[in-house]
Amino acid sequence: MSPSTFARRLASRRRQLASAAIVAVALGLLGMLYAAIAPRGSAATSADPAVDEGRSLFQSLSCASCHGLNGEGGKRAPSLIGVGAAAVDFQMGTGRMPLQQHGAEAPRKRPVASEGDILKVAAYVASLGPGPAIPQFDAADWQKADTAYGGALFRTNCAQCHNFAGSGGALTYGKYAPSLSDATPTQIYEAMITGPENMPVFGDKQITPDQKLAIINYVRTIKTQADPGGVGLGRVGPVTETVVGWLVGIGVLVIVTIWIGARA
């Protein structure tokens, strides 16, 4: 893609995102207003039925037991005021929340709540304070983004933790950057704007929305792309190649040498 088309595409995306952002901010302000004027406690009600249902799900799904009755946080978990709908959608959609066990890091699991319920909880948490909204884009948006550019961005911003092919990597003290093979495009986007746990937040100033879509396209492209050289061996580089070298290469040859020797 030539730089000028790229810039044009960037501009049009910016416009779209700008309007989305205005709506999000307006909704967020509305939420804050509600949070401010609505009576405190579990008996609180709001005009948006999704927020109400979200609030009760927040309790029945045990979120409140860690994050506090109103998501204000506590000893066991951070405050959710201002984390936004995107964080909830990411955390619940990847099954990380509700957290089952305190460990070095919350692992990806099967989500416990339905998609609809997740959106309700997200709406509720969004109503607590303004934060990033769930990004809205469809497959066509990221599929037309520039893969190669996304690849370069990926290697600059993500590979040091997630490895060159998104296969994952170790961080300090038992923490790790997970493999990206299960993440949906929306979750990849959400991960970038919310920065779960040890991952930094990549705001729109660091990585523009278009660049984010390009990264998503790259991650998805190499994930679905077949390995032209045969079995991919986990795409972690020489470590697994070496295991195969010892076991299949030297292993087979030594067994055959022993066999030849025995027949002599």
């Binding site: 590979a159 490895n163 092919a165 050289g229 991919g232 972690v236 580089g237 020489p238 470590v239």
Partner: peptide, 30 residues
């Protein structure tokens, strides 16, 4: 057999060298 069925050194996944980039799990050969 290994050359035909087991991928080794997929440089296209690593990307070109760039001093400002580094990947997790950057290992040399064994």
């Amino acid at each position: 057999f290994l050359g035909a069925f087991a991928q080794i050194n997929p440089v296209w996944l690593y990307g070109p060298y760039n001093a400002s980039q580094v990947s997790a799990g950057s290992q040399p050969d064994w």
